[in-house]
Lab assay of single mutants.
Amino acid sequence: SLEGTEKASWLGEQPQFWSKTQVLDWISYQVEKNKYDASAIDFSRCDMDGATLCNCALEELRLVFGPLGDQLHAQLRDLTSS
């Protein structure tokens, strides 16, 4: 749920159509929501749009996002199937 936050830029759009900015917004949101240590994320490797993100295998997401990769992968699957 997104109570208390302004409507996120990526909400209501299919992930494969996200811009690079929307991807970063979504990642930041997941980091906050999961109380994850953002210093463990290599943000220089997050410079990708939604289509690229959706094409990432779980292993790739783990490389870039560490333990949060599993969470991101699961969330993406939910978003693309809805």
Rank of each mutant, 00 (worst) to 15 (best):
D78I: 10
F43S: 06
R62M: 07
V31C: 08
N34A: 11
E32P: 02
F17T: 07
S81M: 15
C54H: 03
Y29V: 06
Q16S: 12
L2E: 12
S44G: 11
Q71P: 07
E3A: 06
L68G: 03
L58G: 09
G50V: 00
T80W: 05
F17P: 00
E60S: 05
F43W: 04
S9T: 13
S9F: 06
S1C: 05
D25G: 11
L61S: 01
T21H: 09
L68S: 04
L79D: 07
D49M: 01
S82A: 12
M48K: 02
R45F: 08
Q30H: 15
S44I: 14
A8E: 10
A74R: 13
S9G: 07
L72P: 00
W18G: 00
Q22L: 03
S19D: 06
S81Q: 08
L76I: 15
C46F: 14
P15M: 05
E32D: 10
Q14S: 14
K7Q: 10
Q22W: 00
N55P: 00
V64A: 09
W26Y: 04
E3G: 07
S39N: 15
R62L: 13
C46W: 14
L24C: 11
R62S: 10
D47M: 05
S82G: 15
S39V: 05
G50C: 01
L61A: 05
F43N: 15
S44M: 10
T21D: 14
Y36P: 05
V64G: 13
Q30N: 11
N34E: 08
G12F: 15
E13P: 05
M48T: 02
L76K: 01
N55K: 14
S9R: 05
E3Y: 04
I27W: 01
Q22T: 11
W10M: 05
A8D: 06
D42R: 03
T5F: 11
L11H: 06
L79P: 08
E59Y: 07
S28K: 12
K20E: 03
W18V: 00
V23C: 03
V23A: 09
S28T: 08
S81H: 08
Q75P: 02
T52V: 09
A57S: 14
H73S: 10
D49T: 15
P15S: 02
L61T: 02
V23F: 01
Q75A: 15
L63W: 07
N55L: 09
S81D: 03
K35G: 15
Q16V: 04
A74M: 15
Q71V: 13
A74S: 14
G50H: 00
F65E: 00
S44H: 06
Q75R: 10
E59T: 15
C46G: 10
S44A: 09
K33I: 12
L11I: 12
A8Y: 05
T5S: 14
E60W: 04
Q16M: 10
Q75N: 15
W10N: 06
E60L: 02
F17L: 09
G69P: 00
L2W: 04
Q71A: 15
E60V: 03
Y36H: 08
W10A: 02
A8W: 14
C56G: 04
S44T: 11
K35H: 11
D25L: 04
G4T: 12
G12V: 06
R77L: 09
S81T: 15
E13C: 14
Q14R: 14
G50D: 00
N34V: 08
G12K: 14
F43V: 07
T80P: 04
S9Q: 12
F65K: 00
D47W: 04
E3H: 05
Y29R: 06
Q14G: 11
R45S: 14
E3Q: 03
E13N: 05
R45V: 10
S19R: 04
F17Q: 15
D49R: 01
G69L: 01
E3P: 13
E6C: 09
W26H: 00
Q30D: 00
Q30M: 15
L61Y: 05
N34S: 12
D42F: 01
W10L: 04
L61V: 03
A57I: 01
L63M: 14
D78P: 04
Y36K: 05
F65M: 03
E32N: 15
Q30S: 02
P15C: 02
G50F: 01
K20M: 05
S44Q: 11
E32R: 09
E3T: 08
I41A: 05
T52G: 10
A40V: 14
R77N: 14
K35E: 09
L61H: 02
V31N: 05
S1I: 02
Q71H: 07
L53Y: 01
Q14T: 05
F43K: 12
V31S: 10
Q75Y: 12
K20Q: 07
Q71R: 13
R62P: 00
Y36W: 13
I27M: 03
F65A: 05
D25P: 00
V64F: 03
S44V: 06
Q30I: 02
Q75G: 14
V64D: 11
I41V: 06
S44C: 05
R62I: 02
S39I: 10
T52C: 08
M48H: 01
K35L: 12
K20S: 11
D78L: 12
D42W: 03
S81C: 06
W26P: 01
Q71Y: 12
E32Q: 11
L76S: 00
T5K: 05
C46L: 12
T5H: 04
F43R: 12
S28D: 13
R45N: 05
S19Y: 02
A8K: 09
D78R: 10
P67N: 02
C54N: 05
T21Q: 15
K20W: 02
R62H: 08
S19N: 11
L11A: 10
A51M: 14
D49G: 02
G66H: 02
N34F: 13
V23I: 01
R45C: 03
T80S: 11
E6H: 05
E59D: 04
G4D: 15
K33L: 13
Q71D: 12
T5Q: 06
M48L: 11
D70W: 02
K33V: 13
A74K: 14
Q75M: 13
Q30C: 10
L24I: 09
S19G: 07
K20F: 02
A57Y: 07
S28V: 12
G4A: 06
C46I: 14
L72W: 01
L79S: 10
A8V: 07
C46K: 05
S1F: 05
Q22E: 11
Q16E: 13
F17E: 14
C46Q: 05
L79C: 04
G50M: 01
E60N: 07
S19V: 04
L24S: 11
E13T: 14
L58V: 08
L76W: 02
A74N: 02
C56M: 06
Q22A: 11
E32T: 08
L79G: 11
S39K: 11
Q75T: 15
Q75C: 15
T52K: 09
H73V: 07
S28N: 08
L61R: 01
N34G: 07
A51E: 13
G50K: 01
P15I: 03
Y29N: 15
N34Y: 02
L79I: 02
F65Q: 00
S81F: 03
I41L: 15
P15D: 00
S28Y: 11
C54A: 10
C54F: 05
T80N: 15
S28F: 10
R62Y: 10
V64R: 12
L72M: 10
L2Q: 14
Y36I: 05
S19P: 00
Q75S: 12
D47G: 08
A40M: 12
N55G: 10
E3R: 09
S44F: 05
F43D: 04
Q71G: 07
Q16W: 15
S28E: 13
K33G: 07
T5R: 14
V23R: 01
V31A: 05
P15L: 03
D70P: 13
L58N: 06
L24D: 01
C56K: 10
E13G: 09
E13D: 06
E6Q: 13
R77V: 06
D42V: 02
G4Q: 04
L63N: 09
I27L: 14
W18T: 00
E6G: 10
D78S: 12
V64H: 15
D47V: 11
K35A: 09
A38Q: 06
L72N: 00
M48E: 00
E3M: 14
G12E: 13
V23S: 03
S9E: 09
C46Y: 06
